[in-house]
Structures are given as C-alpha cells and as structure tokens.
Design a protein around this nucleic acid. Structure first.
Lengths: 328, 328
DNA sequence: AGTCAGTCTGGAACCGTTTCCAGAAGATTG
DNA sequence: CAATCTTCTGGAAACGGTTCCAGACTGACT
C-alpha cells in the first residue's frame, strides 16, 4: 500500500542504504545514483515514514503542546504561533487540550512522551513534583509558569499589575477588587502577588474574590460578588473573565466605567471589540509561543545547559472600560 | 534511557512476547505471569511506544487535524471538540494550522500522512483533485466542505441564510449586502448560493462585496464599501467579519441597527458579548468536531462503505444588531 | 499408561528507517 | 605495476513493538 524506501530502492536499482543516504546527504553519493534515486522518489511520490525514522534515530520530529483550554483565545494564539514556528523548523505538533483537569494532563503527557522530542506545557496545572518527574524523561519548557529547574517563558505580571494599579490610582480609585483565576494556576498566584505588593505601596485596598474558572461564565458568575464588595474598580484574572463582568454589569445596568472600572489581562483581540472597549494588560501571545518553541529546541539539542527563563513584558492598554472613580 | 518492553520482560522474568500479550489481552496469559508483568510495568513506569507499535500494526493511533486558522474561535472550538472526542477514543491529535495557505496544506498532509490513521480537514482550501489524491493514501473526512466521494460534516447554510433573510425581509429590508469570504472556501460559495436563491424568492436585492479574509480586519476593510452600496442590512461571511463591520461602523458613527442591520455566521461566544450583540446564524461547533471524529473512525474501520455526509442544522439567533429597515 | 486436545510460552520474523561495517571499485602514489 | 588510500556501495543490525509458529506442559479421556 504505502510506498517505502525499498520500493524506491528497487525502482532506482540501488540499495535502501543508498536511498537513505541520498535523502540525508546528497553529496555522499555519486551523481549518477543520486539522479536515479531522485527520479524514483518523484515517480513514486515517496515520503519517508517519520515514525520509523524516529525509531532508529531517537528523534521523532514531533513536539507536544499541552494546554488547559483551546477555547480561550489566549491559548489559541499561543499554540498557533508555536505551531507555525515548529513547522518552520520542520517539527510537527501534537496538541492536547486538558480541559483544566490536572489528571488528564498527567495522563496525556505520559502517553505522548515517547512520541515527542519535547513538551511545551502551557500553564500546566500539575504539581511541581509531577513536573519534575516528567522532565526526567523528556525535555520540557513551561509557558506561563516559572519553577525551579525548568526553562520557561513567562510574563512580567507584577509589572503589568503595577501599571494597571497605578493607572487606577491616578484615576482616584482606592478600593479595588481582584477576581482570582484557578487556584492551581501559577499565573494567578503571580498576578495576585504583584498586585498585593503594589497595592501596599500605593495604599490601595485590595479585595480578593474568587476563585473562578478563567472563562466568560466565570466572570458572569462572580460579578454580583464584585458589586457587593463596594469597590470602584476591578481587575480580572484574564480578559475572558473581564468580559463576563462587563456582560453582567451591563445586564444589571451598572455603568462601566461610570460606576465601576474594569481591567482585563492578556489583550486578546476580542477585548478591543466589545464596548466599552476593555482596558487590559496585554502580552505578546505569539511571541510566547514562538520563543517557547525556540527554547525547547535549544533545550533538546543541549540538555545540560542551565535553563533559560525568559520573561516577556506586559503592557497596559488603556481603553474605554476605565475612568475616574465614582465618589463614594 | 527510556524503559522498553524488554526491560519489563527482564524484570518480570518472562519474554517480551508475554509482556505484549499481557498488555493486549490479560486473559491470554496465566494469572501468575500477569501479576509479574503488571508488577514490573508499575515498578518501571512502562508505557508502550506508540510509534513503534504503529510500525508493526499499521495503526498509529493518531489523527491529523488540519485547519486554516486557529485564531478563529470557530476553528478553535471545532478542534477542541475533535481533540476531546479523539482522546476519549484513545487517539492523539496532530494539529496543523495552515494560515489560509493551500500550498502549506498540501505539504503538511503529505508529510503527516504516514504518521496518522486519518485526517480531519477543516474547510480545506485545496482543489478537489488534490483532495482526491490524498484520499488514495489515507482516510479523510471533510468538515465544512462537501464534495463527491468523501464523508463530510457540513452545515445547512442555505437554510441558515433562508432564516436570516426572511428575518430581514420581515423587518422591511429590500436591499441587502453579502460580504464574501475567501474565494477558495466552499462554505463561502455555499452560503452565497443559498442566499441568492432565497433573495430571488423574496424579491430582495442582493449586493455582493468582497472577497475578504474571514477575519475582523477583513470586516473592517470592507465596511466602507458596504456603506457605499446603499443597503439597509448586511450579512457577513462569518462572525469575525461581522464584528469587523460593527467596529468600523461604530468608528464612523453609523448606528446599528438604526442605520444598518448586521448578521454574522457561526455563533462564536464573542458574538453575544459585543454591543450591540450580534444577530447570527449559529452552528453547533463542538458537534462538528465530535461528529467529524466519529465519522473518521467509522471510515477507518470500514473504508469500503458509502461515505456518510452529515448536514447539521443552522439556527438564526436574533440579537440586537438587526432591526427595522431605515426608510430610504 | 498412552494419546490427544488445549493452554501457555519463548523465539523469530517483521514493520520502515538509519547507521555501522566491510568490501569493491577507482584514483593516487612510489 | 603493485601498494595504498579514497570514495562509494550493499548487507546487516538495530530501534520498540506485534504476531506467527512451534514446542512444552497440563489435564482429560480411552
């Protein structure tokens, strides 16, 4: 059925070894044989079986990308960029959406481990120990999480939060809510940590509500709690949650930013399209994916090196969802 | 480094064949050996190498999913559902985003063909002939495209368009624009076809503008052309394009639906969140992905059967972006 | 006790590719 | 012209599994 290297060898009148050599390094073979082989390859439409190649070389040419939720445009953008970069470097991508379930994450990583040369783990929900266990077998790069011995790509959330809270403070806000994302999310802890620190510095009261799922529904479900907390502004774990807040506020005729200001996180396309347009802390989503792949490939070629931990900047984008604090 | 079946065999004091048998069919082996093997598997944390297994069995346990643009929430939802269903049936998913480029599509399919048991092609941009050529090697299921001999999952776009145009007609609209998507898109042709037919029946003037990329930017870029065409309503190829229109209309202070009504297609989450909330022709995105995987697996197990072509319903969701026609 | 069927097992071949090794040419040198 | 060195080639082993085949053992039946 499928055409193999032997078919090519037979048609070209050479051995399989020579076909292999021609493909790997055309210079290592006489011009005559090379032509024969190339002709046969064209005629049969031969494409090497990468799985079989992986068996002998130990390199599969595959990367695994694991993420919590593809329906979140943030992850979609990251994985799109990762995929594109991987293809450019001649790698194929295994995709696993774990639906926010750490157990699924563990299972999938184990099942896929032998089929990939490395993993890109986006916002992994597993424990540090579990991650260390995986890393024993396969190189991994963490996105949106920074722990001990792993290469990682993260965002300077503390600085983003500083920009956001400074912005709110300048507008007169003194009591601000943070809608927390998943408890198992490192980003969530990091954002909260940065926020607490700068809130202390600026003398802003910080009210923490949540945790909620990092989705629109999560935002909708917590909106009334936010309103009940008598704040004049709210920072959401991410844009989706912020959009949920906006939606519920609108339904309850709470004016944004008249009654309450709202800030998101991520800078997904959508945030610019709603109205009021969402003020948000934007990150370079494609760069996260692209740099993640680059880092992973470096880690694969040189596993011994000290892990690189890239921290990308966050940038507050002021739009229409923030305004002066309502006098209390 | 990695633990193989031989390591397990050695530790359990049996042959590799017995380990294999234990894993494939525990009943085919004496309870004693089974215990030994299972103990060894646990102790070593053995996981079979699926690529190697694929070599001997001819089944890889992988599916390939190819799509034009992961940044489009429609495709993200479809592939998420497909991935989930695939995992449930113990398949892993290769993901390829081709960035709307037919050449990339062809290349990727060929490169991946040997590593997957079948392909799910979402809105493939290749020509019919190319698709037929692929199908010779590997089972494929088409999503959002219906041609000759292939199993497919599509949406009843004509009926969706009928609902939408009837809705507009009832509101008094007699001159309506359609913003066309990519020329290579089957869905686009299909939507246009349905629209023309029902426009004829209802006596509605149909103005076709475009083609534009199926993105927000596409919508933004064509908005002024739409306005210049003196229509009272516009149907967009998809929700993203419609959102682009809304955005540009807002920027030019064109009231929606006061001056012009807007209808999208797909029913992505985002369409409900913008304001005015978008009237749209919604399709069951996860069902497309799920049914696609089911169909693909059926095709794989029984390649000879007559291809099933599932057509899923489309449902007009009336929201705030449509209203009575402005008297001309 | 001897035959037979039925279970269970290990060895070997195979999947498609790469890579090592040895050998056969051809080119180069003394 | 023989000896050496290169260059190129085919055969064989290996990668990690699966599966066929034949043999060893068990137990039942005559």
């Amino acid at each position: 059925m499928a055409v193999t290297i032997k078919d090519v060898a037979r048609l070209a009148g050479v051995s399989a070894s020579s076909v292999c050599r021609t493909l790997a390094d055309p210079g290592a073979v006489l011009p005559g044989t090379r032509e024969q082989v190339e002709k046969a390859v064209r005629e049969l439409g031969y494409y090497p079986n990468r799985a079989a190649r992986g068996l002998s070389t130990g390199r599969t040419g595959n990367l695994g990308v694991v993420l919590p939720d593809l329906a979140n445009p943030f992850f979609a953008s990251v994985v799109k960029a990762a995929q594109t970069q991987a293809r450019r470097l001649d790698y194929a991508v295994f995709l696993s959406d774990i639906d926010e379930d750490p157990a699924v994450e563990t299972m999938l990583i184990r099942a896929l481990a032998k089929q990939v040369d490395g993993f890109l783990l986006c916002s992994p929900r597993s424990s540090d120990d579990e991650l260390r266990a995986f890393a024993g077998h396969t190189p991994i790069v963490l996105l949106n999480r920074r722990i001990g011995p792993f290469p990682s790509v993260t965002v300077d959330a503390a600085d983003g939060m500083r920009q956001a809270l400074t912005h709110l403070h300048a507008l007169g806000h003194r009591r601000v809510a943070y809608v927390a994302g998943p408890r198992s999310s490192w980003s969530n802890r990091e954002r909260l940590r940065g926020l607490r620190s700068v809130a202390g510095t600026l003398g802003v009261d910080l009210v923490e509500v949540g945790n909620v799922p990092p989705t629109v529904e999560g935002g909708v479900s917590i909106a009334d709690v936010v309103l009940a907390s008598t704040v004049t502004a709210v920072l959401a774990y991410n844009d989706l949650t912020a959009l949920g807040l906006l939606n519920r506020f609108h339904a309850r005729s709470v004016a944004v930013p008249g009654d309450i200001s709202v800030i998101g996180f991520d800078g997904i396309l959508l945030s610019a399209l709603v109205s009021p347009a969402l003020t948000t802390i934007a990150v370079e989503m494609d760069r996260i994916g692209r740099v993640g792949v680059d880092l992973l490939l470096e880690t694969m070629t040189d596993p011994g090196r000290t892990p690189i931990r890239r921290v990308l900047p966050a940038q507050l984008i002021v739009r229409a969802s923030t305004g002066p604090a309502r006098p209390s």
